[in-house]
Design a protein around this nucleic acid. Structure first.
Lengths: 334, 334
DNA sequence: CTGAAAGCGCTTACAG
DNA sequence: CTGAAAGCGCTTACAG
């Protein structure tokens, strides 16, 4: 079955390719009724389907953007992607999803491949390790938006949670409930990923606000494979924390697993707040106090920023970092 | 900043475009060392980046596939996408993700758009409502694989869970634990979606296997907004079920929410098994017995099948349905 | 061993 | 109101 092209339609309708093209692009300013109809029937009779690749080559726009996440298995990434996809759908754009797995080499490959594919722009959770690449993008004014993470020295549009505020909300809540010995558990800080850094910073600043001195033993980080041991160590201190802030959902899982396995009563033995609202927060025993991120709003904002760049509506405006407010969801674990 | 094309590289290296193209495609059969070097330096000096769109137009392959899921927010979809993406990555393919939201109109639009974009194939969770479209795809031998769902009458390659077996595993476990009054809750069956139909069928068959008569009042389905009420009704029967099978994770959430809100003790008042392993199963109170699906294996298989079709290695072989075995994860809720 | 030429399927100034 | 022609950036038989 031979592919039907615009030439076939033109022949079948007895007009030129140009006219068919005008018709398809709804530029019928001066087109005769008769001509329109002939083309229309030719299109349906032949089952013509335009080849957008050919159009893209000419128009230099593929109506496609790339989204590079660290890992699509993370709920936050999923929500961000969904928001971006919905936004793109309205403008008839498509999105190519890539998982960089926090690997700078993969990230670089993906960015280059996406550009070779002529995507109109990219939204990425940057690894932060491809400085020259990011700077090159910026110099070229290639449409690009950072999501969730910042890269020091690279002044790119970016959408982030107000991470410090997230930790502050948690500490506020702990203090309000009467806790003074407040610990925090973080994933491994193998690279300087913004949310981790800022949430830890926010935790320290919030403690200071209440004149609570920061205890280094109350802050631990490590790989998930070691996390049970890390939690064990912290809770075995001679003077252990009475409240624990989980830096993200994955850490929260580990803490809950530990509590379950070692019969730690929440919140009596240990109060808990997790950053990231989790699916089971409202029916866990006890229900879980969490700090949620407006993932959909953030994804939408990133898409809007990218489209502004693509449509060159950002001329003259400097790159900006947009901070979104976290929200405390007050339940029973604290 | 003008785009560098293959013509620029050719001029800079003092060779023809053909030769540059040969070089880029690593066909150096007869190429002089000297020539190679000249081209190589030209490429790096100019910072040349090939335009894959142009290549695609000529070669009639975009090295891109489309994946149409019902909703990327579902964990199962996410896992399937991740597996597909990983598989594609090895072959330097990219994936465009679309959410059809169980809307046949959206599904149709997406399939047409993806084809217009010349993707090399599509994997879809079909709505089941675009019969002519599916049949047309099949007639054209367009590379296409159904995921998670079947469409009666359309003989397309498909990858599914052995859904009946999933329900059977659950009923087996309930019976083993001494339960005879076994109910099941399902989402709304507004359209004949394979997993729902088959899981319900499997539940009935498994009951029969144990000579347990099927009680219509023990099987309920409805919208999630009504689900609390539906559960309430079932548990308020004069002779209510003592064990409940949740058709999927979303239903499980609703049952757990109900149990929490109404102080129903699991498993003493009510034993529960959910199809879909959930993130918190191992640290819930009690830990949750679940039936897991091998989502990654299923995604990979779908990608393999699609690639076989794309590479035309499926000539002469009839379309097949691949069934993957569910697995019981024995915990404490039953 | 390398190059000229045609062509992939569109769009778009321009001419008439 | 419509068409001929050039061109988007590649690849690929074919000639030499």
């Amino acid at each position: 079955m031979k592919k039907i092209t615009i030439a076939d339609v033109a022949a079948h309708a007895n007009v030129s390719k140009s006219t068919v093209s005008q018709f398809l692009n709804k530029r019928y300013d001066y087109m005769g009724e008769e001509t329109k109809k002939r083309i229309e029937t030719a299109v349906t009779e032949l089952g013509y389907r335009p080849n957008i690749i050919a159009r893209s080559l000419k128009q230099k726009s593929t109506k496609t953007i790339g989204v590079i996440v660290a890992n699509i298995l993370h709920v936050f990434s999923t929500q961000v992607i969904r928001a971006i996809e919905d936004f793109c759908h309205e403008s008839n754009f498509h999105v190519i999803v890539c998982n960089a797995d926090d690997d700078p080499v993969k990230e670089k490959r993906y960015i280059e491949m996406l550009r070779a594919k002529q995507v109109d722009g990219i939204i990425a959770f940057p690894t932060g390790e491809n400085m020259e690449l990011y700077q090159g993008l910026l110099d070229e004014r290639y449409p690009f938006v950072f999501m969730d993470r910042l890269v020091p020295g690279i002044h790119m549009d970016a959408v982030l949670l107000d991470n410090k505020r997230a930790s502050e909300l948690a500490v506020d809540q702990f203090v309000k409930a009467g806790y003074k010995k407040i610990g925090m558990i973080s994933p491994l800080i193998d690279m300087p990923v913004t949310p981790r850094l800022e949430r830890i910073q926010g935790y320290k600043t919030a403690l200071a606000k209440y004149n609570l001195s920061f205890q280094p033993e109350y802050l631990a980080s490590g790989a998930f494979t070691d996390m049970q041991m890390i939690i064990q160590q912290m809770l075995s201190l001679s003077d252990p924390p009475e409240a624990l802030l989980a830096l993200n959902d994955r850490v929260l899982f580990e803490i809950l697993q530990y509590a379950k396995d070692h019969h730690v009563n929440i919140p009596n033995d240990l109060a808990i707040i997790g950053i990231d609202d989790v699916s089971f927060a409202s029916f866990y025993y006890p229900t879980l106090t969490t700090i949620s991120q407006p993932a959909f709003k953030m994804g939408k904002k990133a898409a809007q920023l990218l489209f502004k760049q693509i449509n060159q509506e950002d001329q003259g405006t400097a790159a900006q970092v947009y901070r979104f407010p976290p929200q405390l969801i007050d339940r029973e674990s604290c």
